[in-house]
Computed example of a mutant assay.
Amino acid sequence: MGNLRKVDFHCDVLWKLLENPALTFNGGDQRNLDVTLPRLKQADSIFQTFAIYIPERMDKTMVPILQSIDLFYRKVLTHPEMAFIRTSRDILALRQQSGVIGAMLSLEGADGLQGDPAMVRILFALGVRAAGLTWNNANWAADGVLETRGGGLTKKGRAFVEECNRLGILLDVSHLSDRAFWDMLQVSTKPIIASHSNCRFLCPHPRNLEDDQIKALLAGGGLIGVTYVPQFVSSRVPAGIADVLRHVERICEFGGVSQLMFGSDFDGIDHHVEGLTHPGELHQLQDALLARYPEEVVKAFFETNALDFLAKHLPH
């Protein structure tokens, strides 16, 4: 059996391109980038979400956000194999083609929008289709998971959620504080995603989700992306593919077979799970999953669950 097609709901290539303008996406910088076009092809990728992440030391304005989007247009979308995904029609077209990889923009941290709903609408017009309000710290919208006070959504944060619901921007709870997570579930009228979070029961890192959070997310029709961040996978070092499978199994125990996907966080991590250092090694995860689950279930994890969700919830 050949490789199954792969969806990855989170990588940080744009951050690295922003930090180092000399980098390219076409494969010439595979020592510096986890995710490159040749490696996506090697993985039989069908879809990749590109996060817009602005590090703490940069300006909290729209400028680096717009620069990141410019890099996406100039260094990613210029390759004919990459197709910009903005609508459910784009997902339909993607599924009917071969050799094409869908590329979607997400915002990881809304700091630079400075609470202005006009900025949300501008990002939507530029193609952003998913958004997480925070990184790990607090901002005008909400508290992140490492903010010690553990606050929830602010008034402006709630308005941000409502505007994203109206426009058709998916909402991402990865990085939110626990209280902000529950606020998001209460305020959003649409299903939410956790693009790159694991099970806190198995690995007690604050970036992972508690069992009741996972159950609530699933009950609301959302998606959870199992991630390959070693410290979210296992407390022991080194983490391996078997440790990733434990998170898959637990989510499945909660009835999440049709709502599980993967969010690698490639290029956002300094260390890797053994055997998962870049997309080209995903066949090893695929083989391990196929040893435990039927092929149709593994295909759902890698492709169908995420694309079905996007076909249903992206704007038409």
Rank of each mutant, 00 (worst) to 15 (best):
N3H: 11
L4H: 13
L4W: 06
K6V: 15
F9D: 05
F9V: 09
H10N: 12
K16S: 07
T24R: 15
I46M: 00
I46V: 04
A51M: 01
I54W: 01
M58R: 14
D59K: 12
P64D: 13
L66N: 11
Q67S: 15
S68L: 05
K75R: 10
M82G: 01
F84D: 07
S88R: 10
R95K: 14
S98A: 10
E108Y: 07
D111N: 12
A118Y: 06
M119A: 15
R121C: 00
I122L: 13
R129E: 03
G132R: 07
G132L: 05
A141W: 01
E147H: 15
L153N: 12
T154Y: 03
T154K: 02
K155R: 09
A159C: 03
V161Y: 00
V161L: 06
E163Y: 03
R166I: 03
L170P: 08
A180H: 06
S188K: 04
K190D: 02
R200E: 05
L202R: 03
P204Y: 06
L209M: 13
D212T: 12
Q213T: 08
T227V: 11
P230F: 09
S235Y: 09
V237N: 13
A239M: 02
A242F: 02
L245P: 05
R250N: 02
C252G: 14
E253K: 07
G255M: 03
G255Y: 05
G256V: 10
V257R: 15
S258N: 15
Q259A: 12
S264G: 10
D265A: 05
I269E: 13
H271I: 15
T277F: 09
T277V: 14
A288D: 15
A288I: 12
E295I: 07
F302N: 05
E303N: 08
T304S: 10
F309S: 06
